[in-house]
Simulated scan of single mutants.
Amino acid sequence: MKAKQIIYINFALIALLIFMTIYQYNRIADFESQLGYNFQRTVKDTQFLLEHDGDPNIWVKTLQEKNGEFTLASHIGELTRLSRQYHMMNGKISMIGVMLDSLADDYHQIAVNIGNDVDYSNNKEEINRKKDFLIPLLNNIDSISGENERQYYKEFTDSESKT
């Protein structure tokens, strides 16, 4: 009788361990999907910001309007927020954060130069150069990772990935 009880207890423990393993696997998969979604959202937000609000000529016109510096400050803040998200990612992808920080500095320098009536054409050229580099890079990153959040997670955390 005691041997039967030990067998039942062993089966119950094995079943419990299998259940806990499946539960943990699902939690890890959900965590990876959430991180992948955050990575994907960061890339897509950066693409949108650079493609639609990245033109320095728009910001020059905006700065010449009343309270235009507040609108530019919002744009610089968004670039900085996205930059921080890239800095939190592992691997070489975090270098995009450095580029976005540099881009934010260039926008800030345009505002300073306009305020001081100094030539800002070099800043505009630098912004366009960085923008022309980043947009195709982000499009390429997005095409490698596709629309799958788990794939984004794998690509952004694996040091041997294509990304």
Rank of each mutant, 00 (worst) to 15 (best):
M99F: 10
I110M: 00
M88F: 15
G54C: 00
V98N: 14
S74L: 11
V118H: 09
Q109D: 13
R84Q: 14
W59H: 00
Q109E: 07
T71A: 12
S121Y: 01
D55E: 07
D45S: 13
M89P: 12
L100T: 05
T46M: 07
Y25T: 08
N116S: 09
N113T: 10
Q64S: 07
T80A: 03
T42P: 11
E65A: 03
L50V: 02
N113S: 13
G91K: 11
H108L: 11
R41T: 14
I110Y: 00
P56Q: 03
N116P: 10
H52T: 14
V98T: 12
T42E: 05
Q34V: 14
K61D: 07
V98W: 13
E69A: 05
D106L: 00
S102C: 07
W59Y: 04
Q47S: 08
K61I: 04
L100H: 02
H108Y: 11
D117E: 12
Q40W: 12
G115N: 06
Q47R: 10
Q34E: 15
P56S: 00
S83K: 09
L103D: 03
D53W: 14
N26A: 02
Q24M: 11
S74F: 06
E69Y: 05
E65L: 02
A29Q: 10
S74V: 09
T71F: 11
A104M: 03
L35A: 11
L35I: 14
I76L: 01
P56T: 00
A73R: 04
N90H: 14
H87E: 14
V43Q: 07
E69C: 05
E65V: 02
D30S: 09
Q85Y: 12
Y37P: 05
I58C: 10
G97W: 02
A104P: 04
N113K: 11
Y86G: 10
K61A: 11
P56A: 01
N116R: 14
E69D: 09
F39S: 08
E65G: 01
E65P: 03
A29S: 07
Q40T: 14
D45L: 15
F31D: 09
Y86P: 15
K44A: 15
R27Q: 10
A29M: 08
A73T: 05
S94Y: 08
I96V: 15
D30V: 11
W59P: 00
L100R: 00
S94E: 06
H75I: 03
N26P: 02
F39L: 10
M88T: 15
L35G: 09
T80D: 02
D55Y: 06
V112H: 01
S33V: 10
G54W: 00
D119G: 07
I76V: 06
K66Y: 07
G97H: 03
L72W: 00
R27C: 09
G97A: 08
N38Y: 12
D105G: 14
K66I: 01
K44P: 10
L100Q: 04
M88Y: 15
V118W: 07
E78M: 08
F48I: 13
G77R: 01
V98F: 15
M95S: 14
S94C: 06
T62I: 04
I58E: 13
N26M: 03
V43E: 08
A29F: 07
D117K: 15
G54E: 00
E51P: 05
F31N: 14
L63S: 04
D55P: 01
I28K: 08
I28C: 04
Y25I: 10
V60D: 01
T71K: 10
D117N: 11
A111E: 04
